[in-house]
Amino acid sequence: MFVNPLQNNPSSEGRNPATPLQAWVRITSGNSRWVRGGSRPIGGRFNRRSSLKTKRPYATVLSCIESTTPPELLCDAELGDLSVIRSAGGVLTPIISDSIALVSTAPLILILGHQRCAIVEAAYHSLSTGETPPKNLRSIIQSLTPAYERAVKSGGAEPAETMMRHQVALTVRTLEVDPRLSPFVQSGALAVVGGYFSLDTGKIASLADPSASYL
């Protein structure tokens, strides 16, 4: 589901987002600050006492474990703004699904893929060549196989990037129909959004956003 960040936004930075649209705009506006180098001072953002008293997460983020993709920094978020869950390649496991459902009081769930994901590239290489991967990658690659199969059907010059986008889309759909989340999705109180972080530009965009020229 694509939440259009160009629609009118009734929220402000001073209020906690109450709708999926407001949460998405907060994500993208924070990311824009980070891209411009205008992030707020860390000491101000991470004031432990004030944050714990006043903050509720406005988004749950599932992202990759790679060290270059920390959602809190990419979104210029404060302590308590985001509930972040990370896994190799952003794969969705039963434990991760349970964890997302547990903290899903926020109006937005962002599934954040990223450019040149080493895990996805390793999975694509293994599945396309038939090479046996290391033991610690086998369950991860198994989880990524449906995205690989869709990438093969889609074709394209950058198959691993296509595979990542399919992985994000599959995860979005899985969560949208999760019986613990689907009533809130159907009512409009919750949106599950697929996003993509460009290592080249530093930007986060919706995978459904046609203006994201680097996708």
Rank of each mutant, 00 (worst) to 15 (best):
I109A: 09
I109L: 14
I109Y: 08
L110H: 01
I111S: 08
I111K: 00
I111R: 06
I111C: 07
I111M: 12
L112W: 00
L112D: 06
L112C: 05
G113V: 04
G113M: 09
G113A: 03
G113Y: 06
Q115Y: 09
Q115G: 12
Q115V: 12
R116Y: 10
C117A: 02
A118T: 12
A118Q: 14
A118L: 12
I119L: 05
V120I: 15
V120T: 13
V120M: 12
V120H: 07
E121K: 06
E121L: 00
A122N: 11
A122V: 03
A122Y: 04
A123R: 05
A123K: 04
H125G: 11
H125P: 01
H125A: 15
S126P: 05
L127K: 00
S128D: 09
T129N: 10
T129P: 02
G130C: 08
G130V: 08
E131K: 13
T132W: 01
T132V: 10
T132R: 05
P133V: 07
P134S: 03
K135Q: 07
K135S: 01
K135C: 02
N136C: 00
L137V: 02
L137A: 06
L137Q: 08
L137G: 01
R138Q: 11
S139E: 15
S139A: 15
S139W: 07
I140L: 04
Q142I: 04
L144T: 01
L144A: 05
L144M: 07
T145K: 14
T145V: 06
T145C: 06
P146A: 14
P146E: 10
P146H: 09
A147W: 00
A147K: 01
Y148A: 07
Y148S: 09
Y148F: 15
E149A: 15
E149L: 13
R150E: 13
A151R: 00
A151T: 03
A151F: 05
V152I: 13
V152F: 07
K153Y: 02
S154M: 14
S154T: 15
G155P: 14
G155L: 13
G155I: 12
G156E: 14
A157V: 12
A157K: 13
A157C: 06
A157F: 14
P159K: 13
P159A: 10
A160S: 15
A160K: 03
E161P: 03
T162I: 15
T162L: 11
T162K: 10
T162E: 10
M163G: 06
M163W: 02
M164E: 10
M164F: 05
R165H: 13
H166K: 03
H166E: 13
H166T: 04
Q167F: 01
V168F: 05
V168Q: 04
A169T: 05
L170C: 13
T171V: 08
T171M: 03
V172W: 06
V172F: 07
V172Y: 02
V172P: 01
V172L: 07
R173M: 10
R173V: 04
L175R: 03
E176W: 08
V177F: 14
